[in-house]
Write a protein that binds this DNA or RNA. Structure first.
Lengths: 208, 208
DNA sequence: TTATAAATTCGACATCGTTCAATTTATTCC
DNA sequence: GGAATAAATTGAACGATGTCGAATTTATAA
């Protein structure tokens, strides 16, 4: 067949991403199949290559959707946290929501890190970059809010490091890795580490 | 052919693991091929299934070899750290060696976490379990040494959490994830977080 | 209506994991 | 030593994958 009037180019793109995301959530990265994703959309494999240019770009688009849902999940959790609960509560809500999303979307969440992008050969579309940066942005904002203003390069670095800390707990937990095998509250542990580091940096900043 | 006198069963096992490990280091998990690994050993695919029972068990054996090399690497780094350097230096050496091994064996290191084991359907051989526990054991020992004795369930939990912290930094760094994209010293950041948490727990224990 | 351009398909290809009947080798027994 | 037995090894078969492009079909323009 040729150009069909079923969907506009944008609609087709959306449709393929939606079906791919659904399939990813069902099967996980290892058992994901572009053929099957296209089949579900009512198209054949080649269409994915036409629309996205290659499998990598398609997977990036699928994972970017997960990133966006994740950000929305975090914002919703923060919005549901009353200001009166104090500033610690916002950090706690953020970390717990981070874990809750990963837990509720295990396959899709892990796929984000299962798909290795060779940044040398692959260009990431700007909109996909933005979806990833948004998450970092949320944490940035909340840490600045917690520490009461002081933003700068050192807090920027700290924020990335705290994200890595939480990520490590979440990843080892969901992958069933030995280290966290019998830990019943990985989110709580991650949160404890985050507060210890935040406290250390507040004290440090105050004593200068 | 039938039973060949080229290798004893143990030798064959070793050979297959060695070739698999080499191939994993070269290609990484995504491009690993059991066929190719067997080919390099001078056997055909079926032999892997005979010896290990299935691909999962083979991959576990291959990754266990990486675990053992990793443990040896850490022990070597610790052995090279003079006692006179102080107890902080041992922790620093441990974390830096953790990163150095991962960096020097990227594909093999990542494969450890790329291979998802369904613990419901897969039984892990005792020797492979031990290879994984050994690493945790090293960190356990060093943290107890640092804190000057006090061992118990709470330190056990802390140790696992610190491992998760370091793992998170290392994983995001090597996978080229956005969060740590421009961080020039991820190991230093991980180390800083570890010391912050260790300090917090020493203070806590001392004030009781 | 016809010609042009764009989208879509589908088959071809090499490869993968998995299984198992057939084959080859080593050992045992006479 | 030679035949019978047991064990290890192979390789073909199967369904599935990603990747590519020529052929086909559709929509639009002339």
């Amino acid at each position: 067949m040729g150009r069909r009037s079923d969907h506009t180019p944008d609609e087709l793109r959306e449709l393929l991403i939606a079906c791919g995301h659904e399939l990813m959530a069902e099967r996980g990265f290892a058992k994901f199949s572009a053929r099957e994703a296209a089949r579900r959309a009512g198209y054949s494999v080649g269409t994915i290559y036409n629309v996205f240019g290659g499998l990598d770009a398609y997977l990036i688009a699928v994972n970017s959707r997960t990133f966006r849902e994740w950000s929305a999940w975090l914002e919703a959790a923060l919005a549901a946290t009353p200001d009166a609960a104090g500033s610690d509560a916002r950090i706690a809500a953020l970390v717990r929501a981070y874990f809750a999303f990963a837990d509720a979307n295990r396959n899709a969440w892990m796929a984000i890190y299962d798909h290795r992008i060779d940044r040398g050969n692959t260009v990431i579309a700007r909109q996909d970059e933005l979806a990833r940066e948004a998450l970092t942005g949320i944490v940035d904002r909340e840490v600045v809010r917690w520490s009461g203003g002081g933003n700068g390069e050192s807090t920027r670095r700290l924020v990335r490091s705290l994200i890595a800390t939480v990520h490590g707990h979440c990843a080892l937990w969901l992958s069933g890795s030995y280290a966290l095998l019998r830990e019943e509250d990985p989110a709580g542990q991650a949160l404890a580490r985050v507060f210890e580091s935040l406290a250390a940096h507040r004290a440090q900043a105050g004593s200068r």
